[in-house]
Simulated scan of single mutants.
Amino acid sequence: MNMWVDRLVSEYEAGRKELAKKKGKLNTEFISDREDKKHINSMINDMSESIEWMKTGRRPGNLRGIDKRSAYQRRALIDMDLFPSLDIQPEEKEISEEQKRLLVNILVELSHRERQCYLLHMAQGYSMREVAEELKISKASVQKFIERAKNKINRKLSCHTNVVRTRTGDEKAVM
């Protein structure tokens, strides 16, 4: 199966070979040819970096930052288009009318921003930084809104025993 990225990589590689041929034909005795050679070298380097990026899925030479946080692995697990041959269907859970009512009552008690931040972070799996970028607010504000939402939810759920644990398992939630 030939994917669009594979075709794009082969086009870039062919373009890089053409540039190398043109660079080889230049005579460095002329000033204009020296300048052209600099531009061609720059273009070849840019194409090489782009090819490596497309092949690996990572920015070339980036040894810190995003790669250390394992963002690419996390995205691979979220994006099921990367696994077209697998017939994995997420298991849907049915909740009772009582649980639905409880969920609505809890979410209604949250402010608009608390609800947005909490649902994006806990239900959609966004990081706090991603939530901040999405809502165009600071990461500290997102942390505070989520903390407030969790406190309100925990207070509301303290009297109920039928709750589902969150991702970390250390606090109660309704997701």
Rank of each mutant, 00 (worst) to 15 (best):
51 I>C: 01
51 I>P: 05
51 I>M: 02
52 E>Q: 08
52 E>C: 01
53 W>R: 13
54 M>K: 12
55 K>S: 06
56 T>C: 01
57 G>A: 02
58 R>N: 07
58 R>G: 05
58 R>P: 05
59 R>C: 13
60 P>E: 01
61 G>L: 00
62 N>A: 08
62 N>S: 11
63 L>I: 09
64 R>A: 08
64 R>M: 03
65 G>N: 04
67 D>V: 15
67 D>H: 12
68 K>I: 00
68 K>M: 08
68 K>H: 04
69 R>I: 01
69 R>E: 13
70 S>H: 07
70 S>G: 06
71 A>T: 03
71 A>D: 00
72 Y>R: 13
72 Y>S: 11
72 Y>K: 11
72 Y>M: 12
75 R>P: 06
77 L>Q: 04
77 L>D: 05
78 I>S: 10
78 I>G: 04
79 D>T: 10
80 M>W: 04
80 M>F: 04
80 M>Y: 11
80 M>Q: 10
81 D>C: 03
83 F>D: 06
83 F>P: 00
84 P>Y: 08
85 S>A: 14
86 L>F: 11
88 I>Q: 12
88 I>A: 05
88 I>S: 11
90 P>H: 07
90 P>S: 05
91 E>N: 10
91 E>L: 10
91 E>V: 14
92 E>H: 12
92 E>T: 14
92 E>G: 14
